[in-house]
Amino acid sequence: MRWPCEQDMNTIGSHNETHAETTTPASWEPKIIAFVCNWCTYTGADLAGTSRLKQPPQARLIRVPCTGRIDPLFIIKAFESGADGVLVSGCHPFDCHYNTGNFHARRRWTLFRALLDFVGIDSARLHFSWVSASEGKKWVDVITKVVRDVRARGPFQAYRTINRRFAFPPYITDHGEEREGAPEKTKESAHA
């Protein structure tokens, strides 16, 4: 069942995906959201940049203080906002800036992955990695693999189909036209 007043929401990116596309357009590029920790992976990705290593440009990095800070709600929000894939990355075990953040995170990921898999979110859309501040090369390898995997799966249409927001249903104006959006105030109704 779908509420009649639901409409597609604008997703991240320049084009407005108002209709779930049934075919993948040739111009489609995957949108990857990468949640990376400040101390290791962000710095590692930065190193890749300053070392001028070639890397795919489809990832949008979101820097967080620690992998332990990455609430699974972030991942859901990323999919809601139109991500086709998500990468979560932080310091190697025993290397965490806060000592235990990544150990706690690892446990949560194992459970969250199982849940997402059970509700049918393909594990090829959700990746995890440890990338340290000196591993610019590893960062390039990881993000290249993520982009390749997500590209192979195509746009995340399944999530797009539930990705609706609450909005006014179409309405008929006084002149008999069908309009979308909030009804305009007329002089009469404003003073009524």
């Binding site: 509420w3 929401m9 709600l73 859901i76 929000k77 809601e80 849940l115 189909t161 539930i162 609450f166």
Partner: peptide, 25 residues
């Protein structure tokens, strides 16, 4: 606001995932 308040498909999906996950273990 992490989860849509209205019972939309999207908010419902997020709510049910979060409820299940918060009870993991």
């Amino acid at each position: 606001q992490w989860i849509d308040r209205s019972p939309t498909s999207r908010g419902n999906f997020a709510w049910n995932l979060v409820r299940a996950f918060h009870l993991a273990g």
